[in-house]
């Protein structure tokens, strides 16, 4: 579905990504691991179209078309979802209203009929049970006064409601206690299917204990220095990133 080739990205003349190659097929779950500052979040921001990054070289294709030409909202409507590391507070905007606006914007994009309020409420009420949030969260302002865990579960709620083709989870596990982590992982697992791809970006392999990644990539200094299966994550957990630094320096 998504094909990243030799991607070089700079922020204000400083090169952050130095030639990333990554291909995700429908049904696959890829994990990117790496230390803080290795460029993981830059990659997810560039895929979802955030401003402020200069692509100096390389390409990202999405089902054969040039993804970099699309606006962030069009990418979202095309089926790319990003779960934020720090979900944003929008004071005064009702959580359900926000989700409905997003849901219907995506339906409009696809030329589908919008859902009216009654239908949307019954949809969202079934979804919110899956992330074990109380229905009262629907009536609160978006992420306003939510705890860290509640914010992340709210991200998962948005994901399972919007039903993207590719879900990027940017450090969704950071700052979560073990119960919240399980709920998030369960949300992802239930949501997996042969048509849907995942890119899980994480600092720790902990969350991968609850998921079943097809491929693990290690990012150091803007490059993917090592790719492998599940065992790679375990090795990183035991030995840290040190043994890979040499590979990165080459």
């Amino acid at each position: 579905m998504i094909e990243i080739k030799d991607l070089h990205v700079s922020i204000e003349d400083k090169e952050i990504l130095k030639g990333i190659n990554l291909s995700i097929k429908p049904g696959e779950l890829h994990a990117i691991m790496g230390r803080n500052g290795s460029g993981k979040s830059t990659l997810s921001n560039v895929i979802s179209g955030r401003d402020g990054y200069t692509i100096t070289k390389g390409s990202i294709t999405w089902y054969g078309q040039d993804l970099l030409k699309l606006s962030p909202e069009d990418r979202a409507c095309e089926g790319i979802f990003m779960g934020f590391q720090y979900p944003v507070v929008i004071p005064g905007v009702n959580n359900m209203y926000f989700l409905k606006a997003a849901y219907n914007a995506q339906r409009r994009y696809k030329g589908e009929e919008e859902l009216d309020s009654m239908d949307f409420i019954s949809l969202i009420k079934t979804k919110i049970k899956e992330v074990k949030l109380d229905e009262s969260f629907l009536q609160r302002a978006v992420n306003d006064g939510f705890s860290g865990g509640e914010k992340k579960r709210n991200e998962i709620l948005q994901m399972i409601t919007l039903e993207p083709k590719l879900a990027i989870l940017d450090e969704t596990d950071s700052g979560l206690d073990i119960d919240a982590l399980k709920i998030v992982a369960e949300g992802v697992n239930n949501f997996r299917n042969p048509q849907r791809g995942f890119l899980v970006i994480t600092h720790y392999q902990r969350i991968l204990n609850y998921m079943d990644p097809d491929r693990i990539h290690v990012m150091i200094d803007g490059k993917i220095v090592k790719s492998g299966g599940r065992n790679l994550a375990l090795k990183l957990e035991q030995q840290g990133y040190g043994w890979l630094d040499e590979a990165a320096a080459v």
Binding site: G49, S71, E73, A76, F84, Y86, I90, V93, A102, A105
Partner: peptide, 24 residues
């Protein structure tokens, strides 16, 4: 951040601004 958050969910910039202002 607020604008990008809305856009990433598929909401256009103009709709996002009006939504944020309404909330305000």
């Amino acid at each position: 951040d607020q604008l990008f958050y809305c856009q990433q969910r598929g909401i256009s910039t103009e709709d996002a601004i009006s939504m944020i202002v309404h909330g305000f």
